[in-house]
């Protein structure tokens, strides 16, 4: 055979293999995804959605179910019928109510989902954008025993990384506390307790703004089309739609946190600063590592040397010089003023 045609065959083989094995978009992973989308998965998703509606006291009918699952109304009706047959839900007025069996089934799925999200956040370096989708797949596969084992390994967490409480193995879930950020008034202060991860595009934008559960907010201004608040000294403006994805616990004493945190990555060579804390966005192994090295509130750090390529920077921490990358240094809050004597 001539080299030209061999070359062509070679290229075709490479392209073919790439088409099959490409991560996420390849045939293999598409097939896996398709196989996952079975009736069982749709039933469980519908049940979970209805449970969520009840939990938040929103009424959800046929069309919201169909919209949430991205299926036609006919299909959604079939699924709801099947759930009724199984004795998991019963119709009430325009909406549906979960039976006791349905509630405990739904809680089990939610528990697995949130444990898996917590696991991904703490034990892997998967991006925060991917936790939810990965857990949406995993919740239908993981057995209760396997989920309990994982929960045990990561210290029986009670909250998932979005701030949602994880139901207990016995099926307890705290009452829905907290208010919507859009319901707060000027001068109110609160702590973000939850950021809704659906729909994805809103969640991603909120993440891009640097918001996270546990952050303190102080409402500066509320007007018709927008809500302005201070979070960690930064002024953030959101439309009511975006604000409604954020749940806050109101704080009684309005601790006015208006001074913006400075980041370790902004420390120039030779400067000193006191550590205030580590951003909750830094999780799992990396967080434990920084804590181990002595990055705790009150520690004095000095930026000592820059590597030949500028990043990482060597910091003097508790008598040792530690190289920390710019990205990680951006997770560490510092106060330069305290030590500038």
């Amino acid at each position: 055979m001539s080299p030209g045609s061999l070359l062509l065959i070679g290229v075709v083989v490479v392209v073919f293999l790439a088409w099959i094995f490409w991560p996420e978009k390849g045939l293999l992973s598409l097939l896996t995804k398709m196989r996952m989308n079975t009736l069982k998965v749709q039933l469980e998703d519908a049940l979970k959605f209805l449970f969520d509606c009840e939990y938040k006291n929103v009424s959800c009918g046929l069309h919201t179910v169909a919209g949430n699952l991205h299926i036609s109304s006919n299909k959604a009706a079939a699924i709801l019928d099947r759930l009724q047959e199984m004795g998991l839900i019963e119709p009430r007025n325009e909406t549906y109510q979960l039976t006791d069996a349905g509630k405990s089934y739904a809680l089990r799925i939610i528990r697995v989902h949130r444990i898996w999200e917590k696991y991904l956040a703490d034990e892997t370096s998967m991006d925060h954008k991917e936790w939810h989708n990965a857990a949406d797949l995993k919740e239908h596969q993981l057995s209760t025993e396997a989920a309990e084992k994982i929960a045990g390994q990561i210290g029986n967490p009670v909250f998932d990384p979005h701030g949602d409480p994880i139901p207990t193995a016995g099926g307890d879930l705290p009452l829905h506390l907290g208010v919507n950020l859009s319901a707060l008034k000027e001068g109110d202060a609160g702590r973000i307790s939850h950021i809704e991860d659906e729909p994805g595009y809103i969640y991603e934008q909120l993440m891009a703004l640097g918001l996270y559960p546990g952050m303190q907010v102080y409402i500066m201004d509320v007007s018709a089309g927008k809500i302005t608040f201070a979070a960690q000294g930064e002024e953030i403006v959101l439309t009511p739609l975006f604000a409604s994805a954020i749940t806050v616990e109101k704080l009684q004493e309005a601790v006015h946190v208006n001074n913006k945190y400075e980041l370790l990555s902004s420390l120039e060579i030779g400067e000193k600063a006191e550590v205030i804390g580590i951003s909750p966005n830094c999780r799992g192994q990396q967080r434990r590592r920084l804590l181990d090295l002595g990055i705790v509130p009150g520690t004095i750090v000095t930026a000592e040397i820059k590597s030949a390529s500028g990043d990482p920077v060597g910091y003097r921490i508790m008598g040792a010089t530690i190289g920390i990358r710019k990205k990680q240094a951006g997770f560490i809050f510092i106060n330069k003023k305290i030590v500038q004597v």
Binding site: T124, S125, Q285, I305, A320, T321, G323
Partner: peptide, 17 residues
């Protein structure tokens, strides 16, 4: 970026005296 994407990762580099 592919097979090892999910593995846990943490960085720090000690510069001993």
């Amino acid at each position: 970026r592919s097979v090892l994407k999910g593995e846990a990762s943490a960085f720090s580099l000690e510069l001993p005296p």
